[in-house]
Structures are given as C-alpha cells and as structure tokens.
Simulated assay, not measured.
Amino acid sequence: MPTPLDIDGLANVRELGGLERGDGSRTPTGAFIRAETLDRVSDAGWDRLRAHGVRAVIDLRRPEETSGEVPADIFRQQIDLDGDERDFWASRESDGQWGTPLYYADHLAELPHRLAGVLDAIAQAPDGAVLFHCGAGWDRTGLVAAVLLKAVGATEDAAAGDYLASFDNAPAMVDLHARSFDVEERLAVLARFGHSPESAFRAMWRGLDLDEWLRAHLDAHTVEMVTTWRGTVGPAPGLSSVDR
C-alpha cells in the first residue's frame, strides 16, 4: 500500500516510495511525493516536507488555477498538464471522463508534449525529493504517478493501490478543504463506461507501452532521470534509454 505522510494541511499526500517492483524490490523513498493543492499547508507542514527531503514542487494545474504560495527556499515550477486543446477536452469534459483514468491513454497519445514537459521539469529539478500536485491530487497527479511507477517497474497491484488511495482519502479531503471531490460522480461516469475505478486504472496500465512512448517523446537525459527516479534506483528491465 502507498505510504501516507502526516502533513498539516494535506489529506491526499503520499510517498511513491516503498511500493513493490516486478523484481521484488521496492521503489525508493525520498524521490517523489504526490499531493493535492498546497493552499492549506501550514508552516509546520512545510517543515515536515522539508524534513522529508522536498526541494522542488511541480504544479500540474492550468494557469488560471494558480493559488497559494510555496516557500522561497523551495523551487516551484508550473507545468500545465491538461493544456488548452479544446478539440481534445470538449467531449471528455461533457461525458465526465476528465475525472477518471479513462482519458489517460488518449492524453498520452494525442497530447504527448504535455506530459513530456512535466517529465522534463522533473528531470531538471534541484536535487532532493520532488512533490507534484494538482487541485485534488487525483487524476492529473495520478497520470504522472502512474507513468513514474510504470517507468521504474512497479507492479500493477502496487500502482493500482496508489491510484485507489485517493478514493480512500476523499472523506478527509472534504473535511479539510470544505468542498466536494465528486466521488459519486466519478463512480457514475466509470460505471457508464463499464468500469470501476480499479478496472479503469488496470486497463490503462496494461495498455501503456511506456518504452515506446519514452523513445518517441523524451531525450536521453530525461529518460534516464525518469527510469532511474533521478538516479535513486536502477532502471527496470525492458526499458530503454535512447536519444529522441
């Protein structure tokens, strides 16, 4: 199961370390942390994040969603993972897929430059742990987490457990942030497409040929940084480091 972190002002925050890899090892801790909006993180919360090694924050939200402040000693970069390509988003917003893993594969195929920009930013971030987040820490954050976990050879069960933790955290998120995170709506959308949250995630995971995607859209340095989690672990068998 994912490792939750006790950070004042966050309810959907967790380590990507400690998850099972296909070779029986575990993903390294202190490399990547995922979270929701940082607006409510207290000074004590930032101290805890620093103590955990966080030196960089990647904000995945759209420019108009920008809110809150990151302490001056922590590097921050905003990379719009969604993008403004209305031809892509209009139908997915109208049928609700935007809040589920149902759009992940299409996003990777049709808007590859969006995720490539995020991974380039992660590769170039200062030494230390990288925290990446969106508004809910659910699906934009979930897409990046899934790719990072696939890149380092995490098992399907481990990656699915990480994705599903957001559903478990939803009640605490509602209490902390005083707004709905649309759990019932997400479940209804998935059901209309014949899925549960778990089956939707697993179907996406099984269809993701990450090696091919990396070859097509990242340069050799970023591939190395992604597949070794910024030099903290050896690359998973079967993933290549090649020039674009």
Results as ranks from 00 to 15, higher is better:
R114P: 09
M225W: 08
V118D: 05
Y104P: 07
Q124Y: 13
T222A: 15
F132T: 02
E156G: 06
D47K: 12
R55Q: 11
R26Q: 15
L148Q: 03
W89Y: 04
D43R: 13
G18P: 04
G137I: 00
V189T: 15
R114V: 04
T232Q: 12
G117N: 10
R192C: 08
R114F: 02
G96T: 07
A105Y: 13
H177D: 11
A165T: 06
A203Q: 15
H221A: 14
P197G: 08
A56Q: 06
S180L: 04
D219E: 10
D39E: 15
V144E: 11
W205D: 14
A145I: 04
L148E: 03
F193K: 09
N169T: 00
V144I: 11
P28N: 01
A191L: 04
L108Q: 11
D59E: 09
R62H: 10
R26F: 12
E198P: 00
S91T: 12
E64P: 01
A172K: 06
H195W: 02
G231E: 06
L60R: 01
T66N: 12
L19T: 07
D47P: 08
R62I: 05
D59L: 05
G238Q: 11
M173W: 06
A158R: 03
H195Y: 04
M1G: 12
R140Y: 03
H217K: 10
L49V: 01
L210Y: 10
R215A: 15
A90D: 15
G153V: 04
T27G: 05
T232G: 05
S25K: 10
L5T: 02
Y104F: 14
